[in-house]
Each structure stands twice: as C-alpha cells, then as structure tokens.
Design a protein around this nucleic acid. Structure first.
Lengths: 415, 415
DNA sequence: TCCAGAGATGAATCCACCC
DNA sequence: GGGGTGGATTCATCTCTGG
C-alpha cells in the first residue's frame, strides 16, 4: 500500500526480489509528443513528456525497466506491457530477451471505437498489451465469456466425439439420442478485448492524459491475482491501476515521477469513482432502433443508417439537390401520419428542406385509402413489400390457387 | 495473369522492378509445425512444412522476400504482410528496415471467433497484417463504415467551429440558425477487422490448410488497387488472393513452391469462371459492386437470389397465392419492354402465373412516359432509386423560386 | 524546413427538457 | 417527478496553411 514519487528505475531498484504478483507497465509509447490535459473543472492541467533523443535511448531505458520488473516478480507472477504501434515490435524483443520467448503468453489487443480523423489510410483503433509470465508455473484464473449470440446452440449443448475417419461429430447414446453436455462454462476469454475508450465526458475522467479505463485493469488484475496479492505499477499516471487494485482488495505499489500524478492518485483513492459503461452494460444492440428489414431498405437505396433519433433513420449517400436528404421508414406501430409528423419535426428543427418517407404498411387504414401529403418536398414512397402485399390482396379476390410441389422444388434447386 | 510453380525467392528475382500495385505476403508463420488438411471429399491431402533450423534462417529468408517485394512494387504500391504472434515483431523490424519506418501505415488486426481448446491462458483469436507503402505517395481508396449506434444525429448533421477558448461548438449563421453539413460519407475503416475465420459458405473451403477468407483479400485489394492493377502473391497457397483478384478484374501473378497448390489455384479459377461466367463475360465493370445493388434489392424484399439467367433473378421466399413468384430486376442495358419480354418468356416456359418486375431505369424512355402492361399477373414496380431519381428531376423542374442555381448544378454533378 | 495554430472529426457521456 | 429523448460537450488524433 505504497505510493512513491520518484524516477521509476531508481525506485524499482529499491524493491526486493520476487515480491510482486503482477506488474502493469504503461510507459510512454514513444510518440515523441508532449501530452497534456485539463481537469473537467478546467482548474488544473496535467502533462507528461514523451520525447526522446533517439529510439535507442528509449529502448535502453525500457530494457532496464523490464529487467527490474522481472527481478521483482514472484516466480508465479506476470507482467503486462501496454504499448501501441509506435514501438511495440521493439518492446517485444526486449521482453523476449528478459523473460524468454517461451514465457510469452499473449499479445492482447485492446480495441475500441473512437473519434475519427482525416488521415489517408485506416483509422487506428487499437493498442497492444504484451502478456509475459516469469515462468511456466504462472498464476492464472481462467475467465469465461458468454457464448456469442451467433453460436449454434447445438454446439453448446451437445457432446461431441471423434468418428473413425477422425472427423468430429455429435455424440449419440445407444438409443441414438443426442447427449447433452453437463457442464459448460462458456468461451475462454479471447486475446482481443473490446473495452470502450474512456469517454471525454465520463465522470471517471480525472484530467490526466492517456488515462486507461478501470475495466481494462480489472480484467488484468482478475486474471493474474487473488485477494491480498501485490500489484505494482511503475508508471502510475492517473492511478487507474492503484484505484482498481484497491477496489479489488489487492495490495499495491505505485510509482510516478510526477508529484501531481501521485497526489491525483491519492485523491482518487479517497473517492473511488467508476463509470458504469452503458454501452457495455446494455450492449450495442440496445441503441439500435431498427430491425433487419429497415436496415436492408436503407442499404438498397445506398443510405447511411443513423440511430438515436425517432424521426430520422438515415441519409442518402448521394448528395441530390446539393443537400443531405434524411429518410424515415414507417414503423409497424406507427400510422403513416405519425411517421410523417416525426419526420417533419426532426427535419424542421434541423432545417432540412427535402425528405423521404418510406411507407411500409397501411396501419389503421384500408389499403384503398390513398394518403397525400401537401408538402411536395417530402417524397412518400411505398416499400417493395407493401407494393407486393397490395398486389397480392388485389389478385386474391379474383384468383384461385393452383400449386404444384414439383415446380417449387425445381425452383429451389436452381439456387 | 500468371501462375508459377517455383521457389518464391528465385521467381521473385525474375520479375521486373516497379510493376506491382499490391503484394500480399502470407508466408509460413514460423510455427515450427507441419500443416496438413484434407479436402472436403477426403480424397486429397494438402500440406506444407513450416519448420526451420533457427529463427535466423527464417528471418534471413523473409528479409530477402521483403527486399524483393519492395523492388517489384510501383512507387504508389503497398505490401501487406500476414503473420501471427510467432514472429510478428521480428518481421516488422525487417519491414522497417526495407521500407522505412516512415512508410509504416497500419498494424491491421484480423480477429475472429474460434472454437477453443481450453489451455491455460487467453484464447488466441487474432492474426496481424502489417501494411507498409513504398512511398508517402501511395494509392489508397478510402472505405467508409456506418456510424456507431451511440452517435447522435446532430453530430453527423451540423457543422461545427472552434470558439475563442479553443472549444468546439455548433456553428450558427448570421441569423443564428444552425448550419447543415453538406456531405457525409461515414466513418473511416478501422484497423481492426472482424472477419469470420471459417467462411459462412463452407464450399469456399478447398482443403488447403491456413486458407484465408475471400472477404479479407477483397478488402485489401479494394483498398489499394483499381481495376486492371497488378496483384502479386508470392505465397499463393490455396489461391484465395488470385481468385479474388480475378473476381475483381485485377491482373495477378501467383507463385508457390508446391505444384499441388498451383493446380488447386487453377482449378478454383476455372470453377470461378464456370459459375460466374455470365457475369464476367458481360465484362461491365466491377462484378462485386454491380451485384451488390441487385442483391440488396432482393434482400430487402426477402427474396432468394438464384443463378442469374437473363429472365429470373430470384424468388419471393413467401409463397403468396400458394405459388412461387419469380422476380426480375431490369438491367441497365435493357429497356423495360425487353426486360418484361425476358421475364414473360422464362415465366411462361416454367408456367409461373404471377411475376414481379422491378424497373430500375427509363432506358430509352422519358420518365414522363408511363409504361403499362396489359398482363395484370405481372407486378411492375419502380425501384426506390428510380423513384428518388424521378422525384429529384421533378423538383428541379417545378421548384424554381426556392431553388438556387448552385444547388441544381450540384445535383447534376452528383448524377 | 519546421513549427504553431486552425479545422475536422465521431464516440459516448452528461444533462436539459418534455411529457 | 421520473422515464425517455435528443442536444451539447470534450477528447486526441491527423491535415493543412502560413509565417
């Protein structure tokens, strides 16, 4: 339970051998920039400098940090080195050297969605965490994820066996019945972690730049330590590791060269704040207000779908009439009039002149009733399905059905 | 359009300087294993050996491959090196050396869900693709994704500006009204690609181990080349790169040391030509884009696409009137009359009573002309796009007052 | 040639407002 | 007043321009 202000290397050298269960290293990434940020109340500015005279200088420093970390770890302990594309390959070579490539455990990818920029090329949206253990005999608490919704339920619930030809098949008992699996824990945790980036508006934000989310550290600490174990963070920064360790009843040592950083950490310890991520808790699906049908309509007219507004479902990609044109698709529980009103309201407050409404049903109206909108800046068109439905209804009145099974099968087999 | 059996390095040396637009390198990953797999019919076994006397031997080989690749690339060209945790860090150092670290573009993470062996530790479920360009002046086709469901519409719609204090806020015009954004493309493609490992279509599987999904190669080729450009794959394997290049109308060179591999590639190419011949022979532009529109129309009316003959493109999944209903989508080069005739002919020979024709353009007709079909067993409906197109044209004609010339010209130029 | 500053950007939270 | 909707805000990236 220690927090120290001081040069990371010197402080590490004062620590005993084989005492730490996990060390989380979150050093400067070799971005060659100065990082700064203000607190939410704008009163205080935190910064740190990540500028080096050369890659060699940086790597020399990091090599020593890694060597010391190895010394301080218990035989069953692990290290997590957080970095990004800037120097990850060089750092891993240092890790191989100090820990041995046989103690490489995982390359963890932390990925997230974040604001975009106008870069030519791909949008960078992940960082890398190298996971090495001090020995083969490392402490590891297995962690299981829930099955993905797309997983075939049969595969979860049925036992499998190997047939004579070496292929796997579902097991049957002597009566030919399928055999259900008794105990399935879920899917072992993947090495790709989707954890939302700490939002600029989140309460969890302390004002320290490059702050990591508590959720990330929770996972690392959970995987490699038990209660009472010792967590060491030599690049303490905003103190996320320390705060998380405290919340999880682990012991901790935090080191940082900046007094500001250590006092911030102390402050956060006194007042433990963890943002609950709505996104993670509710899932992405909770934000989506469209079903597959509506998406596919938008797709087929080359529109960009948007969420979080009941009046607008998307925009035409093409810039007809020199403007973006918003689109709404009538919902099953809306009358066409209600749908139109919502669209007009959204369109008006956003000053849109031209809009498109797609009618998908005749809710509370006979299909004979026509619907006219006096505003000719709104295009109202029937969905294909509605067209077909009406046509079928019209024909049904006059036609009796003839139907051959053979015909149907022919048609399907051409697929 | 060449396929060569031979040692990768020797064959590369026979190629001229500066000819390739993209090179996809999918070498052995230094797994120190022999990989083998049988075809689906169990008749043939493919294998390759990824065993080396030392890391140095492997890296020496790869260094030469990378140097040759650099030489063969055009100045605007790019290389994608596919690898995994086994040697990725060493390989990236070689890339830095040959291409220069300033030409590092992205570390692409290909991640997927995978069935688990529950070893101690995290489940490995990603591979890495390093993307380097030969120069800063590299060819790159931007590619956009949908917005996140949590993004609110105002973000997307309203222009913003920087206030005096440096903070961003929504822009207002001199009347205090919000200013709309004119053009939105979506979110730039991320460097984390989730693409299923085993492709949904199992018959894509050739029996070759470590086969890569077509979707992955499609994306790489799309990002960095245009039609007619040259794609080179020195580790051809099952030939996915070559097959994809062919489908996308790119030129290609494939090299592999194994005659089995090259003959498999040839077979896949022939098969592709056989099944897709209708589309490829028409030779009208990008096969993939062309079909997206038609597929998405069929998808949005819940229809099953069928092998395309000129008369029928799909069938409604729902059996209205107890009958299957065939659908045709008017081609760009057909008049609506021609399209109807083809549909009627196909429908008649197969004795379909009811049919649907979707009109996508006014080929050789003014949009004022209406087209009536006396056969009321055929439903003719306009595509959404056609509706919108007509609406735009109408507005251009009738709305003269509230319509500025600039707007009109924009509309024309987007057409 | 290099640096400073302005501009653009969207995810996800907070929060004001409205029934 | 509370549940839901949608508007406002902030961050760290990259590009571009001018001195």
């Amino acid at each position: 339970m220690t927090l120290k202000v001081g040069n990371c290397l010197e402080e590490l050298k004062t620590l005993d051998d084989s005492i730490a269960d996990v060390i989380y290293l979150d050093p400067p990434f070799f971005t060659q920039k100065e990082h700064q940020l203000k607190t939410r109340d704008n009163l205080k500015e935190f910064k740190f400098v990540d500028k080096w005279t050369s890659l060699e200088e940086y790597l020399n420093f990091m090599d020593q940090v890694i060597k010391e970390s190895n010394r301080i770890l218990k035989k069953t302990g692990s290290v997590f080195l957080h970095c990004d594309k800037s120097a990850s390959h060089h750092l891993r070579i240092l890790l191989d050297k100090s820990f041995g490539s046989e103690n490489f455990r995982s390359e963890i990818v932390w990925c997230y969605k974040r604001w975009s920029n106008s870069k030519k090329g791909l949008l960078n949206s992940h960082q890398t965490i190298y996971f090495y253990s001090k020995s083969q005999d490392f402490k590891f608490n297995m962690f299981y994820d829930s099955y993905s919704p797309t997983t075939n339920v049969d595969q979860i619930l049925q036992e499998r066996m190997r047939a004579k030809n070496g292929k796997t098949q579902y097991k049957r008992d002597k009566n030919g019945e399928i055999v259900n699996i008794k105990d399935k824990k879920g899917v072992p945790l993947s090495d790709v972690w989707f954890i939302p980036y700490l939002n600029p508006k989140a309460h969890e934000r302390s004002g320290y730049p490059t702050q990591k989310p508590i959720l990330l550290l929770e996972r690392i600490i959970q995987l490699t330590t038990n209660e009472g174990d010792l967590v060491l963070d030599p690049f303490c920064g905003s103190g996320t590791t320390i705060v998380t360790a405290k919340m999880m009843n682990r012991q901790f040592i935090g080191i940082d060269i900046s007094p500001d950083s250590i006092s911030l950490t102390k402050q956060r310890l006194k007042n433990l704040v963890k943002t609950k991520s709505n996104l993670l808790e509710r899932g992405e699906g909770d934000y989506i207000n469209k079903n597959k049908k509506e998406f596919s309509i938008l797709d087929s007219i080359d529109a960009i779908p948007v969420q979080r507004n009941s009046g607008i479902d998307g925009f035409l990609k093409a810039k007809y009439l020199g403007e973006l044109i918003p689109i709404k698709i009538q919902r099953e529980d809306e009358t066409i009039q209600e749908a139109l009103n919502k669209l007009l309201k959204s369109g008006k407050s956003k000053k849109y002149e031209y809009m498109i409404l797609i009618r998908t049903n005749h809710n509370q109206q006979s299909f004979h009733d026509s619907f006219e909108c006096e505003n000719d800046h709104v295009l109202i068109m029937n969905s294909y399905d509605l067209f077909i439905e009406d046509w079928v209804k019209l024909n049904k009145l006059s036609v009796s059905t003839s139907f051959s099974l053979q015909k149907e099968q022919d048609a399907i087999s051409t697929n």
